[in-house]
Each structure stands twice: as structure tokens, then as C-alpha cells.
Design a protein around this nucleic acid. Structure first.
Length: 271
DNA sequence: GAAGACCTGCTA
DNA sequence: TAGCAGGTCTTC
């Protein structure tokens, strides 16, 4: 579930909680596949005693830079989250210096932690982060015009642009008034301009609201403080199938595009 | 492209 | 109880 705004929120909160500069005293791994290919013993040995120098984010990856020079790269996938309080699906627990304990919670067990010498081995496969200047309108328009794919799966492709997931992709397309199945090379310069701005806009608003949460269950997004994301009420398209478009009052339609649930306005977003 | 795999829990 | 979920990977 976490997309760029949710991961950014979590990274900021971990920094605010003072996790940077702390030393990892002990590590307990309760679900070994999270840290594959390393064994629990190897992982613990390499991480224990390390100081977390900085916490950063690229796309949906969170990066803990360790004093050793290695980087702990964390992908939350569908349901990963962090908490400073013990919970019911804590897959990794790290005791830090100064009495802090970090709980990595992941109901669905999809999240992955990778301890790497060089983060570029993973980041090199990603397109530019959507909220950086590297993700420029020039790059975006060029890339879209040179592909012949449906626009929604294209902007979801992390190798093209890093950070968008299913919620913010639907939101950006709704805002730009572009049908999710439009072919990328059929979009006019004006449409691409709108979409470029919409992508930056919906992600920035998402960050400002500390992410999006939908339901109320254990798989639902929570930030480090256990709060739901404030962007919930601001969603215009995602999950609103059958409800009126806030722009034109037409009922939003729900379909499947490239195997992902997709909601759009059949009047504002024409094929 | 598409479909299945990886998982658990919520909703209808 | 079946179907679906914010993500990615692998294998056709």
C-alpha cells in the first residue's frame, strides 16, 4: 500500500523520532523471508553494532545508511509499516541506543529488507524519483512519446518514474483528465503537460497530508505514530467507483486496467 | 501483455 | 465464503 507519500511520511517521522544517529544494539527477525537472501544469523551479525547515520527515500524505497558504509534498503510493499510501540505483526524488532525500539510491522509479509554495499545496484533500475528535478517535464514527455503503451501501467512502471502506485496514478489521471487506457504516444503535448503537473501535485498533496489510508483494518496504512493518513478524504477517484465525480457529477466507473483496479470519470477522462 | 505467486485480513 | 487489497517478481 505505501506509495511515495506514505514512505516519505514514515521516513520523516523516523527522523523526527531521533532514529538517525542511534546504534542498533539487537535485532530480532521473526519472519526470515523479509531479509532474504541473507540468513537471520548473517543479517544480525552485519547489522548489530551499526549506527544509523541517515534515513532517506528514493521512490518507494527507504534507505538507512549505516556507519559501515552499507545501506539497509527497505521496501514496505503492500502492508509494511514502522512503529515505536509493540504490535501484533512485528516481523523485525531492533533495539536501538538511548532506549528506543523500532518495530517493523507487516501483516502480509510482502515487505523486503536488503542489506547492500551499493544502493545503486537497486536504484539503478528505477526511473527518476517523481518529486525530484530529475523527473523533468522534458524527460517525461520524451519518454511518453517514445513508448506505445497504455498510460496508466506506464506511469506505474517504477523503471520509468519512481513513486507512483495505484492510488496516486488514478488520482493523477483524474486530475489531468486523461483516460487510463490512452496510449502514451497518442497524448498531446498539452495533455502530457497536464499529467506531468498532476503527478507532482497529487504526490505533494499526499505528502502534505501524511499519506492516504482507506479502511480501518490491520492491512491499512498507518504512520509511525499509528495515525491514518489525512489524505483519505481528499481522494477524488481511487476507490470512489459508483460515486459522483467531484468535477462533473457523472458517476465514476470502476474497471481493471493492466490487472489493477482502476477508477476514472467516463465523462472527464475520455478514451 | 497476462497470469500466477507471494500473504493476511477485511468486506460483501 | 469468495473476492479483493496500497506492490513487485517470475514465467509464459
Amino acid at each position: 500500500m505505501p506509495e511515495l507519500p506514505e514512505v516519505e511520511t514514515i521516513a520523516r517521522q523516523l527522523r523526527a523520532r531521533g532514529v538517525e544517529g542511534k546504534t542498533i544494539l539487537t535485532v530480532k527477525v521473526n519472519w526470515a523471508p523479509t531479509i532474504q537472501p541473507l540468513s537471520v544469523a548473517q543479517f544480525s551479525r552485519q547489522v548489530r553494532g551499526q549506527t544509523i547515520d541517515t534515513i532517506s527515500r528514493v521512490g518507494k524505497w527507504m534507505l538507512f545508511s549505516l556507519r559501515s558504509g552499507q545501506t539497509l534498503m527497505i521496501h514496505l510493499r503492500m502492508a509494511g509499516s514502522f512503529s515505536m510501540e509493540q504490535g501484533s505483526h512485528d516481523r523485525i524488532v531492533m533495539k536501538l541506543s538511548d532506549g528506543l525500539t523500532l518495530y517493523y510491522r507487516d501483516t502480509r509479509k510482502f515487505g523486503r529488507w536488503k542489506l547492500v554495499d551499493d544502493p545503486q545496484v537497486i536504484l539503478g533500475n528505477l526511473g527518476p524519483d517523481a518529486l525530484t528535478r530529475r523527473f523533468s517535464r522534458h524527460y517525461f514527455k520524451d519518454t511518453m512519446k517514445n513508448r506505445h503503451r497504455m498510460i496508466k501501467p506506464l506511469i506505474l512502471d517504477q523503471g520509468i518514474v519512481a513513486g507512483l502506485g495505484n492510488i496516486y496514478a488514478d488520482e493523477a489521471l483524474w486530475e489531468a483528465q486523461i483516460h487510463p487506457e490512452r496510449l502514451s504516444d497518442s497524448l498531446s503535448d498539452e495533455e502530457l503537460e497536464r499529467l506531468f503537473r498532476a503527478i507532482k501535485h497529487v504526490l505533494n498533496i499526499g505528502v502534505r497530508n501524511r499519506g492516504t489510508s482507506l479502511g480501518a483494518g490491520k492491512t491499512n496504512y498507518r504512520d509511525v505514530e499509528g495515525e491514518s493518513g489525512g489524505h483519505r478524504e481528499k481522494v477524488k477517484a481511487y476507490g470512489r467507483g459508483g460515486k459522483p465525480c467531484t468535477r462533473c457529477k457523472m458517476l465514476l466507473e470502476r474497471t481493471v486496467v493492466a490487472q489493477r483496479g482502476t477508477t476514472y470519470c467516463p465523462a472527464c477522462q475520455r478514451i
